[in-house]
Amino acid sequence: MIFDPAYLAAMVPAVILVGLAKGGFSGLGLLSLPLMALVLSPVRAAAIMLPILIVQDIVSVWAYRREFDRRNLAMMLPGALLGVLAGYLLASRVSDAAVGLSVGIISVAFAARRLFADGKAQQLVTKAELLPGTFWGAVCGFTSMIAHAGGPPFQIYVMPQRLSPPAFVGTGAIFFALINLMKVGPYLALGQFTHENLMASAALFPLAILATLAGVWLVRRVPAERFYTIIYWLLILVGLKLVFDGFTGLHLFS
C-alpha cells in the first residue's frame, strides 16, 4: 500500500497540506482527509493521519512555545475533552456528512460576513470567555474526533479576538496538540492502530516535518492583515468543500 501510485498521489499532497496547516495556514488542513478518502476509508485515513498530526504537533508547539494565549486554552480545553468523548461515543450514530455540512455552512457564513458584510467598518474585537470558549471547544473536539475537522470552529471563536498571527497560530498549535493526544485512546479502542496503518504513518513522517517547518517559515513572513485575509478565503474554500461533500454524502442532490 505504501508505494502504490494512487495511494501516494493522494497521501503526499494531503500530508503537505496538513504540514502547512500545522505551521500556520490552518484552513488547509481540512482538505487533507477528503483527499485521503479517495483511496482509503475515512476512518482508516483518519487513523493513519493521527500519528502524523502528533509528530507535526511536536514541531509546531516547539516553534510557537512562547507565543500563545493561555486564557483561550483554559477556556476551550475542558469543552474539547467533552467533545472528543462525545465524538467517540456517537461515532457509530452520527453521519460524517451531516457534521461536515453543518461545519461548512457555519464556516462559509462566518468568513463571508467578515470579508464582505462588515465592509470598511471597524470590526468588533472580542475576548476569550468561559461559556463561548467551552461551547466552541466542545465543537472543536467533536469535529476533530470524527473527521480531523476542528479548524473552522477554532477560527470562528478565536479569530474575532484579533490575536497577533504568531499568538493565533501558537494557541491553535497547542490546543490541537492536546486534542490529538486526547484522541489516541479512542482510536486505540476502535482498533485502528494496526501495524500496516502505523507503517504508513511512519513512511510519511519526514515529509510531514518538512511541510510543518515550511508553514512556520511562511506565516512569520506574511503581514498581519494579509494573514487574516488569506485565512478567511481559505475558510470559505474549505467550507464550500465541506458543504458539497455533506450534500453528496447525504444524497441531497439526488
Score class of each variant (00 low, 15 high):
residue 145 M to I: 04
residue 233 W to Q: 03
residue 247 F to R: 01
residue 84 V to A: 10
residue 109 A to Y: 11
residue 101 L to E: 06
residue 109 A to N: 04
residue 116 F to I: 15
residue 23 G to V: 02
residue 213 L to H: 11
residue 9 A to F: 10
residue 93 R to I: 11
residue 189 A to W: 02
residue 160 P to M: 13
residue 8 L to K: 03
residue 140 C to K: 04
residue 41 S to Q: 12
residue 125 V to D: 05
residue 201 S to E: 11
residue 71 R to N: 12
residue 195 H to R: 14
residue 227 F to P: 06
residue 5 P to C: 09
residue 89 L to T: 08
residue 15 V to Y: 00
residue 36 M to W: 05
residue 11 M to S: 14
residue 26 S to N: 15
residue 21 A to S: 14
residue 21 A to L: 07
residue 167 A to G: 03
residue 176 F to Q: 04
residue 103 V to Y: 01
residue 111 A to K: 04
residue 206 P to V: 09
residue 103 V to E: 04
residue 95 S to R: 00
residue 215 G to P: 08
residue 208 A to C: 06
residue 198 L to E: 12
residue 2 I to Q: 12
residue 207 L to H: 00
residue 217 W to I: 12
residue 75 M to N: 11
residue 142 F to Q: 02
residue 58 I to G: 13
residue 178 L to R: 05
residue 166 P to G: 07
residue 230 I to N: 02
residue 172 G to M: 04
residue 99 V to F: 00
residue 24 G to M: 03
residue 111 A to E: 04
residue 49 M to N: 07
residue 48 I to C: 06
residue 82 L to C: 13
residue 221 R to L: 10
residue 46 A to L: 13
residue 245 D to W: 10
residue 102 S to L: 13
residue 245 D to M: 13
residue 38 L to V: 11
residue 198 L to T: 10
residue 164 S to P: 09
residue 156 I to S: 01
residue 63 A to Y: 08
residue 40 L to P: 00
residue 206 P to M: 14
residue 28 L to E: 05
residue 207 L to V: 15
residue 153 P to A: 07
residue 116 F to Q: 06
residue 102 S to F: 14
residue 230 I to G: 07
residue 38 L to D: 01
residue 95 S to P: 04
residue 254 S to T: 15
residue 242 L to T: 03
residue 62 W to D: 12
residue 213 L to R: 12
residue 55 V to P: 01
residue 69 D to A: 00
residue 41 S to I: 01
residue 26 S to R: 11
residue 239 G to F: 03
residue 52 I to D: 02
residue 72 N to C: 09
residue 42 P to K: 10
residue 160 P to C: 14
residue 179 I to P: 07
residue 12 V to L: 15
residue 3 F to T: 13
residue 154 F to P: 09
residue 246 G to M: 02
residue 149 A to G: 11
residue 56 Q to C: 10
residue 144 S to M: 05
residue 207 L to C: 05
residue 110 F to Q: 03
residue 35 L to P: 07
residue 164 S to T: 14
residue 145 M to S: 03
residue 20 L to V: 09
residue 66 R to P: 00
residue 146 I to A: 05
residue 107 S to L: 00
residue 127 K to F: 14
residue 1 M to Y: 12
residue 136 W to V: 01
residue 246 G to A: 03
residue 237 L to N: 00
residue 191 G to S: 08
residue 164 S to D: 13
residue 182 M to C: 06
residue 116 F to D: 02
residue 91 A to G: 03
residue 34 P to D: 09
residue 131 L to V: 15
residue 135 F to W: 09
residue 175 F to T: 03
residue 247 F to M: 12
residue 161 Q to D: 08
residue 230 I to D: 01
residue 161 Q to V: 09
residue 192 Q to M: 15
residue 39 V to E: 00
residue 174 I to K: 01
residue 200 A to P: 08
residue 194 T to N: 08
residue 237 L to K: 09
residue 150 G to I: 04
residue 147 A to Y: 02
residue 221 R to M: 13
residue 82 L to V: 10
residue 44 R to P: 00
residue 140 C to Q: 01
residue 144 S to W: 07
residue 236 I to N: 06
residue 73 L to C: 10
residue 187 Y to E: 08
residue 215 G to R: 04
residue 230 I to Y: 11
residue 155 Q to E: 10
residue 241 K to N: 15
residue 99 V to Y: 00
residue 170 G to I: 09
residue 54 I to G: 00
residue 32 S to T: 05
residue 252 L to I: 00
residue 35 L to E: 09
residue 160 P to Y: 06
residue 62 W to N: 14
residue 215 G to A: 10
residue 46 A to S: 14
residue 161 Q to M: 15
